[in-house]
């Protein structure tokens, strides 16, 4: 059962991403996560929103929006990030290789890797023509 829910809407531009990060970090602390876990949530939202701005909207999202919903229940802090870009499942992309030598390293892919590693659960769905990325931190027992 959801005991708390909050929502923020930002324009799909890089300048607004820190606003979403701050909002989520605050909600995470209110949900009962510690500073380190709240930082992980903030970094995950940063990476997810940056991907949307750079790839879904190709840096032209001035008139587009990203919705971020934070939900807290008794066991979990859930963040849902929604955009209106073309269908794209970031979780279907291959993870970069952390053991790759310098000369075989490309320029991207680490954002999704961090989301997977820093969050306890991740999921993607396409709902009402929107991309919905759901990322979850379990609350301390």
């Amino acid at each position: 059962m959801i005991v708390n829910e909050s929502h923020i809407q930002i324009a799909a531009v890089l300048a607004q991403v820190p606003i979403a990060c701050e909002f989520v970090a605050r909600a995470a602390l209110q949900a009962g996560l510690d500073e380190h876990a709240a930082y992980h949530c903030q970094l995950a939202v940063d990476e997810a929103c940056t991907n949307i701005v750079e790839h879904a909207y190709r840096m032209h999202g001035e008139n587009q929006i990203i919705d971020i919903v934070c939900q807290t229940d008794n066991q979990r802090f859930t963040i849902i990030i929604m955009d209106d870009g073309p269908a794209f499942n970031p979780l279907a992309q291959p993870d970069p290789d952390p053991t790759a030598p310098l000369d075989r390293r490309g320029s991207g892919g680490w954002g999704i890797h961090f989301i997977r590693k820093f969050m306890d659960e991740v999921g993607y769905s396409r709902e009402a023509n929107r991309n919905c990325l759901t990322i979850i931190k379990r609350l301390p027992a």
């Binding site: 940063d46 990476e47 940056t50 310098l102 000369d103 390293r105 320029s107 991207g108 680490w110 961090f114």
Partner: peptide, 13 residues
């Protein structure tokens, strides 16, 4: 964030 990592890797290369 990963954006910072990208820059320092590029510089190192």
């Amino acid at each position: 964030s990963s954006a910072g990592l990208r820059e320092i890797v590029f510089a190192l290369k």
